[in-house]
Structures are given as C-alpha cells and as structure tokens.
Write a protein that binds this DNA or RNA. Sequence first.
DNA 1: TCAAGTATACTTGTATACAAGTATTATAAT
DNA 2: ATTATAATACTTGTATACAAGTATACTTGA
Lengths: 242, 242
Amino acid sequence: MNENNEFLYPQKWLSKSSTGDRVASELRMQIISGKIESGATLTENKLAADFGVSRSPIREALKILAAENLIRLERMGAVVIGLTEKDVEEIYDVRLLIESFVFERLIKIDTKNLVTELSKILEMMKIAIKYMDADEFSLQDVLFHETIIRTIDHSYIKMIWDNTKPVMEAFILLSMRTRINEKYEDFERILENHELYIEAIKTKNRELMIKSLHQNFDDVQGKVDDLWISQQTLSKGVEKNE
Amino acid sequence: MNENNEFLYPQKWLSKSSTGDRVASELRMQIISGKIESGATLTENKLAADFGVSRSPIREALKILAAENLIRLERMGAVVIGLTEKDVEEIYDVRLLIESFVFERLIKIDTKNLVTELSKILEMMKIAIKYMDADEFSLQDVLFHETIIRTIDHSYIKMIWDNTKPVMEAFILLSMRTRINEKYEDFERILENHELYIEAIKTKNRELMIKSLHQNFDDVQGKVDDLWISQQTLSKGVEKNE
DNA sequence: TCAAGTATACTTGTATACAAGTATTATAAT
DNA sequence: ATTATAATACTTGTATACAAGTATACTTGA
C-alpha cells in the first residue's frame, strides 16, 4: 500500500539495528514530519503489510514509539499522537535540565579530552555544511550533545538522553533538511553557538553555557525568526530526501 | 525449575497488565533484591520455562528491563546488571532534578486541589503503617510523588518519571518491607517529611521543599542510620512476602 | 597429550498460527 | 423506518515454528 519506496530516515544510520528499530525510526520520521497525521490509527497488520515484515518487529516498533509518546497503544490499534509545539518545548525543558546538571559535574572534572572531542565534532559539522549535507550535520549535532552528556558517566541521566534522543534527532533532521536550502545562513549561527558552548566548557563558565544552550534551542526551534517550525514546514524536509 | 512459587511483586497490583509486564515486574524485584545476582545470564528459553509462558512476553519483559538499565541485552543472553549504590544515588539525582523543576511550575499555579489530594494520600499512608502494610505504604508513597509530578501536565517530565518509577517502586518496596519490622520508628520520620512537603507546596516555600525532598531521600536510602541498605538487607524483604 | 576441525546444542530475530475479544455490518422482527 | 440480534471481519496477546548464527564439546588425527 505504501506507494512511496523512499525512506525518510537515513538508511546508512541503521547498519546494525534490527527490523523493529528500523521500522521505529522510519515511523518516527513519518509521524514527526506529518506524513502520518496525528489522530490516525495504525494497526499491526497494516503496518506489517506496508513494511513487508511480520508483526513481531512491528510490535517492537510500536512499543518504542509508545515509550516516546508519539503514539498511544489502545485496545484496537495505535493512535498517533504526533509532536506538538508544546512537545518540542518540553523536550528542550528536559535538555536544559539535564545539560545544566551535566555542566555542574563538568565543572568539577578535567574536560580537556572532552573539549578536544567536541572540537573535532564541530569541524565535522563545518564540513557537513560546506557540502550541504543536512543529514550528516544533524548527526554530528546530536552527537555533540551526546558526547557532553556521556562524559559524566551517569546512567540515569544517560537513560533520559536515550529516551529523548530519537525524537530530537528526527526533529532536528527534518528541521535542518528544510533550512539547509531555505535558510543557509542559520547554520553560521548554530556553529557560533556550539563554539560558545565549547568555550563555556573549557573555561567552566556557567553563564556562558546557559546562554549558548538557550541560543541553541532558539536556533533549532527557529525562534529567532519564526515562532515555530510548523508541521507544514517540516514536511518539506520529506521531499528533500534521496 | 523455579521451586519457589511465591512472587516478590504484589500480584494485586498487576490486575490489568499483560504477561510481559508481570514478568518484568517480578524479574525486576528479583534482580533488585539480589535473588537474581548481578552478572548472571538470563536466556529467553530458560525464563519462558521458569515462568511457564512463551518467549513472546519474555522478550517484552527483557526489553523493559533493558530500558531500565537492569539488564544488558547481548548476542547470547541478557546479562544482569543489577542496582548498585551508585544507581540509587543517580535515581535520586534525577528525582531531585525533576521534582525541583515541577516545584518551579507549581509555584505559578493554584495547588489547592493538589494539596487536598496529597493530604488524602498521606492519610492512606498512615493507615498502611497502622496495619503494618509495607506494600500499601510503598504504593502510596510512590503515588504521592507521581501525583505531584502529574499536576504540571508535562509529557516529557512524565516520561522521565515513567522510566524511573518501576525501579524506584521496587526499591522502595523492598526497603519498606524490611524496615517495617526492624525500624518501625523510621516511618514516623517519613510521614513528617511528607507533611513538610505538602506544607512547602501549600506555602510555595522553595527552601522547605528542597529540605523535605532531601530528607525524604535520606530516609528512603537509609542514610540517617546506615550509609546504604545493602543487598543483603534488601533480600530480607524477600522472605517477608506472603 | 594436544591441536584442528567438525558436529551438535544452544542462542536470538523473525514469521506464522491460534485464541479471545471487540467493532462493525448485515439481517430479521416489529 | 428502526431496533435488536446475530454473523462476520478485524484487533491484539500469546504460543509456536523456522532460520541464521554462535559457543561448546567432541572426534579425529598426529
């Protein structure tokens, strides 16, 4: 039934994952992009037929998406919740919360290796922009923050990250795909913010860190120019995929 | 193979849940209590035979426990990680983090209904103690905090709660089962702290809230008297079950 | 005795089968 | 025409079957 053979989620990022993970990644992109509309009902049999797999991995995928609050498992089918403006704000609440927590820990330890690692990632981001590779840029952006969080070796903070990461990654991916064509200049600012962030970690400057973190959120959310990247805008990222 | 027919997790709390959830709840208790030791390898077939169910719900359970970082899914079997002292501290980091966040929101809204609800729960806790019902007490204790968190209607904060709650619930359950016999007087202090917490919410007193929250953690963790409720101590809770 | 290679008995991941329950639709009676 | 009832088609939850891969143990050779 799925007449569109192209996938929204970069297939090369799925090297080692199971069928269930792949389906979850793809469904997540379709839900967040709006290709699958909020309120729609997904049934296991239909999805299994669409993806050409059995119900086992589909069930796995639905469990994952339910944990991410993108769908709601009901007696008859899974109802799509989707990602609202409120959700995105809430995700950033959580990110601000955990990255602030992490920063307090970073202040107490040696961050030399971390700064080196982050500088490397930042350079990768620059290359990605140079070649207009929104996907690679998004990957590195997410990795940037993950690297910071992993440094403090806190399994429950990491758990929170693991739970929010997939949705955030998908959102950033769609957002960047749109903007790399329409608002290329945005990326300059994003890079500056990341440089600021590294500087904050290097100098253990709390205010600077909070400032860059907030600016980064505003950037990703597009608050600088628009209030909110609408579902319609996000869905543009769908077409750019190849 | 499981010669012990008794369950650690209260069966009446599982009214509506699926087999997978039941298995997860029971395995969680066995892991946290130390009945299943850290480092042990669990295989799906063995667990299926032990619980007398098929592999499907077992797989479901293992996925849940892996998300809670209690086990690590590997190519051949699931390796039990267990709950270390560090983990418990980290859980409380997260609780402190989210409950502080929640409190900031509570300050801005009308908390009259919440205070009423919390008072009710507190009275339930008192009754539970009166009848030496550690399980009911634990249930209400967890519900107390969940009620506070749900008030602000923040789906991602709630997500964090949903992810940490099961482990915390199991830990509190085992801790309370032990202490209701050995340290009955502890419960007086726990009640006082909860009263303080309600007072803090009522008067929107941030310092009081932080104070009671910290004291509550110390109480549950047993830091007032012991540094840490050892695995050995926790396992006593195993025997008290009936 | 030891080493190399092979057979065997597990392991998970996915597909399929079955069972119990729910919504819908069709049918029949008033 | 409408309402009650019954048949049907579809849903999830669980059990089982199969396939691909891995570790263990054994056999065979020196």
